[in-house]
Design a protein around this nucleic acid. Structure first.
Lengths: 141, 141
DNA sequence: AATAAAAAGCAACATTGTTGCAATTTAATA
DNA sequence: TATTAAATTGCAACAATGTTGCTTTTTATT
């Protein structure tokens, strides 16, 4: 799976290519898991204000570049969207989010499809998030 | 479905029957949806301190009486457990939690079974929460 | 080089949640 | 009923995550 260059993506979405935006996007692309603002703050505290990081994440999400996941601790995390599925107007990130109780990492298990859920007739579904807690591959001995 | 009397439950779990504990338990029993501390605070602000409410919820959860759900806004909510499934030592609340985007209510859809999810071999599952967002029966026109 | 719009920085604040400790209340026992 | 230990509560203080308003800086275009 090839990654588009961060600068190109920012261009295409009408964002300016500031150092921090490039670095944040590259980080989310490479890390392969869902990242939170506090994490970014630790990583990039010399490069940007904490509020800036919140705003970058919000801006990226709004354009369908990343999606927001509420992790099991109630902290917002963000991971790359599948380009095919998500746009500025609609997100479709109905995969499994795995929360490791050992290391705290949250990874998207894109490969696993969430089976169709049959809701009672009077309920209508717009989004879905399957949070699983357990031990991830790294922490398994 | 008959409900056990709140006072009896508190007795059986070794809790003291204080007014606020009885009222909180009765409220969670009757309301039929997942309640948050801020909700209880609005309801019972004259009867108890905010910290007390946090501690009551934590105590009830620890004994397997209610279970904790992180809602889509990252706020902890609690709902009655199914007696048959939950104990002090283990929770089993693997049902659907429906978050209404209109009214904000969160309800447990016990009737809907979450299908088995096949994780990659190196991952192990301990808990599971399927959060669905949409419009609930009350808000459907 | 001038300019408008986007982005960033800073301060202040809101909300949810936690911890420590002292005071009170419950329920059991003498 | 009085005593007592343990449970419960209240209060103050704090921590973490997140938001808003406003000014300043930077980017990219003209």
């Amino acid at each position: 799976m090839k990654m588009k260059k961060a600068t190109q993506i920012l261009n295409e979405l009408g964002f300016r290519k500031t150092e921090i935006r490039i670095k944040v996007l590259e980080y989310i692309q490479k890390i392969g898991k869902a990242v939170s603002q506090p994490e970014l703050e630790k990583k990039f505290n010399t490069l940007a204000d904490r509020v800036t990081l919140y705003r970058i994440l919000a801006a990226f999400e709004e354009k369908g570049l990343i999606h927001k996941i509420m992790d099991v601790h109630g902290v917002a995390r963000y991971a790359m969207c599948n380009e095919k599925h998500c746009t500025e107007h609609e997100h479709h990130d109905e995969h499994v989010h795995f929360n490791c109780t050992e290391c705290g990492d949250v990874v998207c298990l894109d490969s696993i499809k969430v089976p169709d859920i049959k809701l009672p007739k009077s309920f209508s579904l717009s989004r879905l998030n399957l949070n699983i807690e357990g031990t991830c591959d790294n922490c398994q001995k």
